[in-house]
Amino acid sequence: MRSVIARFVRRKPLGAAGGVLIAVMVCTAVLADVLQTHDPIATNAAYTLGPPNAEHWFGTDHLGRDIYSRIVHGARVSLIVGLASTLLGSVLGGVVGLLSGYIGGKTDLIAQRVLDILQGLPLLVLALVMSAALGPAIHNVVIAISIPIIPRAARVIRSSVLSIREMQYVEAARSLGVRHLRIAFRHILPNTIGPFIVLCTAQLGSAILVEATLSFLGLGVPEPYPSWGRMLSVSAAEYAQKAPHLVLFPGIAISLAVFGSNLLGDALRDVLDPRLRGA
């Protein structure tokens, strides 16, 4: 295991850097209560829009809340929403892709057309309409972001199922009388794990980005959870000139998280799934 990681770091230094960024984000999310210097929700009328100083590392917002502590807790929200929606979308899409690729024929054709419908709308527009329709709640945001991921996941898994399906060990299993469902889930599914991991890593970044955008527009994670996207919406327009730190820090947090997941996703794709290179 250690030698695998060492080789990955040597061959893909950028990917490793992305891995470190994601690891930092996970640690921040897990240890948010320890890392915070103030209560992220507590307001302080005496020190609003304060610039960064020794007490408030990243300054305070228009209600006097500590930006650093809010960003630390925001990591938790972003990661939970990002991971949950990525996993939900990828698993649902993966099952659709597995069945549609394995069964083939008419089922495959119909499934593909239905996926076309879901993929016909820009990801953000679909998520926007979904989250407006479902109402502001953290689980609704997860659902809204995961739906657009389904067709992407289904396509990736389907294409790798199509090639695995023709392999001899699958034929062997079939001639032994193994049932179809068992072949699909026990013999084919485990071999799609490479593309699946690549897919999840790449989608995590876009899920975090969509969450930030939805929250920015006021359709994402509701109060009192501190969300990076909403920190930008409340503050930005009105106070940006007086207090640029309000805009800078949450945006940097979002960018670094997405950047890390993109870097890692790219490197993992090259290592785990050479066929997808450049896709």
Binding site: G205, L209, T213, L232, L248, G251, S255, V258, N262
Partner: peptide, 12 residues
């Protein structure tokens, strides 16, 4: 470019 939210880039 793929990682920065477009709206944030605009603000900056």
């Amino acid at each position: 470019g793929l990682s920065m939210p477009a709206f944030w880039l605009g603000m900056v």
